[in-house]
Design a protein around this nucleic acid. Structure first.
Lengths: 204, 204
DNA sequence: TATCTTATTATACGATCGTTCAACAAGATT
DNA sequence: AATCTTGTTGAACGATCGTATAATAAGATA
């Protein structure tokens, strides 16, 4: 029974949920999954202990919403004319300043660790991954067809995704001698050599 | 004060430490860092609660020893004649059956998450990574020199490591349509195209 | 103004966390 | 045999975990 209460800022449910999601991402970025604690998140968000369970039934539900928000940002759709531009945009998004950021990548890493463990998160991840990969395969096939090339689009997509995630991981874990621009060029160069033609420009 | 004790199996310190390290890896592989619990590990190893802290001052120390064991296995040295064979061996090791195994990769993923967080683990990781990368750069340079090629060995090493780790990650998180052999070929093919010559055989 | 909904707080609870410690047993040394 | 070292146990401790809940305040509705 609180004897006296100080006036508090009241937000709409949607706003507060957004706050908590962002606070959660910040926690994951700072200390990984072991810092993803009700108490940590509530401090980051500047709210009381019980509020998190009021807006999210359970901590796992918050984590799911966090993952949704992160993937949604990564594959945010924009208008594109050609398959080539679609792929370029996908790579640009993967290495923009907000994404290719140590704290953000640590958050991704922490979540991947949970994906490998939690069934609910895993199925959500599978779903997002398949959409992401399918989009890539379609674009690759269109490029191949237009240039009369015979390529294994599925393998190419797998390689590109692996390269992107691997570069993320490497930057996240040591980041020395690493430029955002170089990482992008690595991807384009890999695509070019897999296609057999220099369709993506690799300017320095 | 235990009223009555049953006879127990007594091992040498070295043997028991090895047991605990393996039990810890199994825990990490099953449930990630959140399953890396004194109670879980002790059950996996079939020993009592207090024994872990007897052999390892703290849980973090055990984790460091686990990481050491894992990296030692990965870059276990064997006799090699040529730089080409060194690289081939490194890739073979990265994708042998014990390494390219879901449970093992989950353990790696869990540890990477901690590397990004814990300073002690991070410095150990940096150290191992630099040795690993330097060895790769040397081999690449030797190959380039022998074939009179002009390549950026540092970037090539970064790309190869990223590709390996990315393939690990992808296999760990979804593993469908993924063959161990295909992953290796991805690496060799990437090396060939980066070098500009088909020195590594990419047989199907 | 009275009523109703709900965002928010603070506390409490049971479970589990990592670590400490006294007791004890196994095996080697004397 | 007696002593000593050390591998091993099980209980206990304080801290922290996620969640539930009663009280309250804010704002909308009547």
């Amino acid at each position: 029974m609180p004897e006296k209460n100080i006036a508090y800022l009241r937000k709409t449910s949607a706003q507060r949920r957004q706050d908590l999601i962002e606070a959660g991402i910040r926690c994951l970025g700072q200390g990984g999954m072991s810092a993803f604690t009700i108490d940590n998140i509530r401090k980051q968000a500047g709210v009381s202990r019980g509020l998190i369970n009021h807006h999210f039934k359970t901590k796992d539900e918050l984590l799911l919403k966090i993952y949704s928000a992160m993937t949604a940002y990564l594959v945010r759709d924009e208008y594109t004319e050609s398959p080539k531009q679609q792929i370029e945009l996908l790579i640009e998004n993967s290495f923009d300043e907000l994404t290719f950021d140590k704290s953000n990548l640590r958050a991704w890493l922490a979540i991947w660790g949970q994906v490998a463990t939690s069934p609910k998160l895993k199925s959500l991840h599978q779903n997002r991954y398949e959409i992401y990969k399918a989009k890539l395969i379609t674009a690759i096939n269109e490029i191949a067809q237009a240039n009369k090339l015979n390529v294994d689009a599925n393998s190419m997509a797998r390689r590109l995704i692996a390269l992107i995630d691997g570069l993320w991981l490497e930057y996240c874990l040591h980041s020395d001698g690493f430029s955002l621009q170089a990482a992008k060029m690595d991807c384009f160069q890999s695509l070019n050599s897999n296609l057999g033609i220099s369709i993506f420009s690799v300017e320095k």
